[in-house]
Nucleic acid binder design. Structure first.
Lengths: 225, 225
DNA sequence: CCATGTTATCGTCACATGTCGAATGTGCTG
DNA sequence: CAGCACATTCGACATGTGACGATAACATGG
């Protein structure tokens, strides 16, 4: 939701040579006064001012988080005047959903969440940092080389979940062909799995999992992880 | 360049309920050891470990910045294995360039940088937080309502710079029509300015500036600001 | 000009961060 | 198993953050 904008602001603040001034820039952008923000954060305006004027040169993650959250909260109270402008840009065709986890998630836990079981001999003792859910036929048709970046988002240490696969052959072939490799592959509600798909997963050392769940349920379950 | 990925990481770390674990996640993503990172940051591995295990719960902006910069630096030394994957996605047609400043920039300073002078009576006593450089004809043709968000990026407190304008009439009409307003408008190397454009700028209380510089020069000059 | 809203400055103080070095696990590999 | 690379845990200590309240400097507008 507003996670994207919060992340953007926080990132900019941290990278800035003048974190305080950057905080101020954003507060001004939201048209929120020090007093209102202080009230919302249950503190006093001088604290805000001290940070913005960089009496404290390196504010801690906790403070930045609360400050940014405060801006977004107050904006929401004011009818999301600024927040509305983010507007969740849509994914490419074929990408049904994706997410980056903020901490590493054991593949084992991920699999349990989806009632997925391993096919083939590769163990599940690794972590993943995100996932992408793809509609296999559409993804393979409409995602050319240039768009692969989008599939992998910010990390390749992710699970690629393919929906609408019959034998799982073409997805695995595509992975085989591409230089970027996922950390795991999941087939959602597949038919009978092609032995070649399994062989490829073993050659590539990428765990292959299957689940009986349909795509929408998968998104739901992964929502809270 | 890699500013985008650094921002992303830093933002995620700050917002995370477990900043340390998120730092670790990214270091693992880059496949860099604590020892190497410590060496690069001119410190000892235990420091890295302490943060990642959250012995310190709220690392300061300075530390996070150095840590993230370290990851990207080392990745660059390794041939940008991870960094390559960002791949600067292209803008919409008609958008020649845009930037978000990390601190507020006085419009006056901005104008001087571009050798721009004000047209009309609106003063330049305000700050801007970024700019977008547009090819006027193409932008007006190809950017529909849904894409306006993109023009404004993360903040509306920005200068819209239009290149290839003749009279400046349609750009100002477009601004007049749209609910989102920029903080300033610049015409790059225009012909004779239509009086209506000036009137509109005054009605909207948006300073209107002109510069003789062509678009590429503008991008160069704003690069370092 | 007085009230109100907004921001800046500063003294103070507890406690967390930032940093190091030494010691203590793991796990791989020759 | 010895040796190495990698990671963790912990004691110690200086400095900076995080917080508050008091005071003052500014606009803005009744």
């Amino acid at each position: 939701m507003d996670a994207e904008i919060r992340e953007k602001i926080a990132g900019e603040v941290v990278l800035s040579a003048h974190p305080g001034r950057t905080l101020r820039k954003w507060r001004e952008d939201f048209e929120i006064s020090q007093r209102d923000l202080a009230r919302h954060l249950e503190t006093v305006p001088s604290v805000i001012s001290d940070y913005e004027s960089e009496r404290r040169a390196s504010p801690g993650a906790g403070f930045i988080r609360r400050y940014v959250q405060g801006l977004v909260d107050l904006d929401t109270l004011h009818g999301s005047r600024v927040g509305q402008r983010l507007g969740a840009r849509p994914h490419s065709e074929g990408i049904l959903g994706m997410q980056e986890f903020s901490v590493a998630v054991p593949l084992k836990a991920f699999a349990e969440r989806l009632d997925a079981k391993a096919v083939g001999r590769i163990g599940l003792s690794r972590d993943i940092h995100g996932y992408t859910l793809l509609d296999a036929p559409r993804a393979i048709l409409s995602i050319d080389a240039a768009h692969y970046v989008e599939v992998y988002g910010w990390t390749t240490q992710r699970a690629l979940i393919f929906a609408n696969v019959r034998y799982g052959r073409s997805p695995m072939v595509a992975i085989r062909a591409h230089p970027l490799k996922p950390a795991a592959v999941v087939f959602a509600n597949p038919g009978r799995i092609d032995p070649l798909a399994i062989r490829l997963s073993e050659v590539e050392n990428i765990p292959l999992l299957t689940t009986a769940l349909p795509a929408p349920t998968i998104l739901e379950r992964l929502e809270e992880l």
